[in-house]
Amino acid sequence: MTDSGKPLAIALQGCAKTFPDGTKALEPLDLAIHAGETVVFLGPSGCGKTTTLRIIAGLEEPDAGGKVLFDGVDVTPLPIEQRNVGMVFQSYALFPNMTVAGNVGYGLRIRRTPDAEIRARVAEMLAMMQITKLADRRIDQLSGGQRQRVALARAIAVRPRALLLDEPLTALDAKLRDTLRLEIDSLLRSLGITAIYVTHDQAEAMALGDRIVVMEHGRVAQIGKPREIYQRPATRFVAEFIGTMNRLTGVLQGGVFTCKAGTLAWAEAPRQATEILFRPEDIRIAESQETAGLHGTVAAAFFLGDRTRLFVEVGEARPLVVESTARRDFGHGDAVRLAIDPRGLLVL
């Protein structure tokens, strides 16, 4: 980890969560988050990512024995109002009885900050989020994107020790989500704040996370940098949950993988396996004079402008997904030969 030199900001020690009805939401979890780092919890719904965030926030208590440490201090018994964390909710949780400025200034008012200071800080926050003009608006007069900006400004205004974001972009439409994702990214970088971001959207996780914690059924499936998670998934679940993964069944022996559609060279240490995985972008449509590769027929082709997404039938349960930038037309039934970058091959 590149951040290992930095002090620990947040640590979870053996944090599990069982709900009163007996549902085990989280298996005992250990996690260390460094100061200034953005960690993304990624996983399908019900995987325990939000529960973990709520335990860090102080909105849920871990089962007996679990501990939450902030800067090395045990904060497990403290309620959220004493933890000094900034939180952004999926539904924003803005107060309808206050104006935009009232919302942003609320945390400071609770802290009995002098009025002049509140005014200055609120103005600063509104300027930072480019919503100065909305200061006197009521919450019900704001669009979704504006609400999200207010929620961020409100959470940051109190100078929290960590910013916790619970699916903050899920309620927005795709285009706005992209814009706000960029904004959040530059915001987190410029503030240098420790941030924990929960999402089920892998693109968001890739774009924002210094590290991604992939979760499945209340367990951590893998922790790593986005590139590691994508290129070296630790489990099949991670491999299939993030991005698109192709799968071939056959026999891997002595540096060669043999399957129905042909053979592939295996560049890494020799090992045995019956299944091999690779990403669509590691496949290339081979030129006619090339010898190596797999043979297949095009089952479907979708021209996307910058590339063509092909589904190629190779005698497996699922056709291979191929991303081709070749300047040619593909039609149903075309015979193609596929070359696969040996560095992209995975065995799990």
């Binding site: 959220i80 802290r111 916790l164």
Partner: peptide, 15 residues
């Protein structure tokens, strides 16, 4: 109204 979330929001701000 989503009372629960509103209260959690206020609590996260120190209330």
């Amino acid at each position: 109204i989503d009372l629960q979330t509103l209260e959690e929001g206020a609590a996260s701000l120190g209330a």
